[in-house]
Amino acid sequence: MNRNPVSESRFARAALITIALLFLALFILLPLFAVFSEALKEGFDDFAEAVSTPDALAAIRLTLIVAAISVPLNMVFGVAASWAITKFDFRGKGFLITLIDLPFSVSPVVSGLIFVLLFGANGYLGPWLAEHDVRIIFAVPGIVLATVFITFPFVARELIPLMMEQGKEDEEAAISLGASGWQTFWHVTLPNIRWALLYGVLLCNARAMGEFGAVSVVSGHIRGITNTMPLHVEILYNEYDFVGAFAVASLLAGLALVTLVIKTVLEWRFNLHHAGARH
């Protein structure tokens, strides 16, 4: 057997794989396993019962609505921002990227607080809203706003490095061949970034469904009306209904896992289909 100059010895390979898997097992699989084992501790029937109470169903519905509104908004923004940042040169680009990253670094407590300070009864816009009977905080719009804030960077963050790497030659070529801006985006850029985009959307969606801290501040915790799944988990946990809490939590984790696995499978099949057809 010939020793490959750009690969490691068998031993090093095995060691690295072992380290990586151990690390992931310890820090990610173990907590995940703890969630599922708590959820199923009393058997599957209790699990099924916990996730089908009216309050749980209302929470699931609200979580899906919030994700369905906030993810597309951030997707459009993410694509637009990455296009502006990677296809053009302008001053203050690093500053703009940092502003996009900003929601990552804001404490979830503060992310909720800012919307209370803005739209709450004593907030800057609160009195005007109250006069016109518009409800933002302690209702669905507030929850959506907080979620959009929290998940704001995900799509853009995923796209910017990739589009920077890809440069703009493809687009320039398409334009010089007479394609319009939209055609270029649709037929040249989009196929190039599709997996990163899908990926960003999935992450954004997972985070949107899982956000707890910020939403907790703006929700008002009204059962069956403004409780999202993570808030419902907290309530059940506080009621010492540990099985119920972990059942709803494992539903969230399961949802995320399923989307991620589907994405992996799609990606794999798509690549098989188009192998060789692309440059």
Partner: peptide, 10 residues
């Protein structure tokens, strides 16, 4: 990616 998806409180 699981840590992004699991609610932080959980």
């Amino acid at each position: 990616d699981l840590p992004f998806a699991l609610p932080t409180a959980v």
